[in-house]
Amino acid sequence: MPTTPSPFLTPSDRSNRSGAGTVLARQGALLAGWVRRQGPKRVGAAVAVLVVLGLAIWWAASSLGGGTTPSAGENTPAPTASSSAPASRGALPLEGVNALDFRLGDCFKDFDPEAPQSTVVACGTGHSAQLVAIEAYAAADSYPGRDPLKQKALDACKAAPLTEKSGDYVLSYKLAYPSSTSWDKGDRRVDCYVVADTGNVIMESLLR
């Protein structure tokens, strides 16, 4: 079964350390054979050499291993994904996208503001709605009530920067905001859509 390498050792660090230990052990075995051949007169000298060799092995192992463990304050956190760069959802069109996963500028085919899911399409293809504004309350905020939520969504619609092409279509605003139930589940989004009630007639993005 493979073992998990130490997080403080790179592959080169591990190979260098084990390699050095193998070479010094072989030298020790050769020296021990030489001692047996020399007889008792030189045993004392051989013992002294073995002591020196043991210290050399200890020093080599300490030197090679010492540089692999960070000192206090050298640890750096693992990199994390940036929240400002959402992961790709794949190629469009995408069916069954949850309303809380809609992104600013998304365009929708056969849009139903009451449906919990919609089909996201490329804005250069026929679509009936586009998400043009998103506002969010803080997670710690208390439920403000239906009327304040509706007003916040309407204000977001009025502030949305639409292109001049929006004047080529008959559009209406559709608002989406949390109910008290969805608020309790963490929903803090207030969304504004521009919608063409005549179907998938919009052929470009209407958001600057």
Rank of each mutant, 00 (worst) to 15 (best):
G96E: 06
G96R: 09
N98Q: 14
N98E: 07
N98F: 12
A99C: 10
F102E: 15
F102T: 14
F102R: 15
L104I: 13
L104K: 12
L104V: 15
L104P: 10
D106L: 13
C107E: 08
C107D: 09
F108K: 03
F108S: 02
F108A: 03
K109R: 11
D110I: 06
D110C: 02
F111S: 00
F111C: 04
F111T: 00
F111V: 04
F111H: 03
F111E: 00
F111W: 04
D112N: 14
P113M: 10
P113Q: 11
P113L: 12
A115N: 08
A115S: 15
S118A: 14
V120D: 03
V121R: 01
V121T: 04
V121E: 00
V121H: 01
V121D: 02
A122Y: 03
A122Q: 05
C123Q: 02
G124K: 03
G124A: 12
T125S: 14
T125N: 08
G126T: 06
H127G: 05
H127T: 05
S128E: 08
S128Y: 07
S128G: 10
S128A: 13
A129V: 12
Q130N: 12
Q130H: 13
Q130G: 09
L131F: 13
L131V: 14
A133K: 08
A133F: 14
I134S: 11
E135D: 15
E135W: 01
E135F: 01
A136F: 04
Y137H: 12
A138E: 07
A138S: 05
A138Q: 07
A139L: 05
A139C: 00
A139M: 04
D141S: 11
S142E: 12
S142Q: 07
S142N: 09
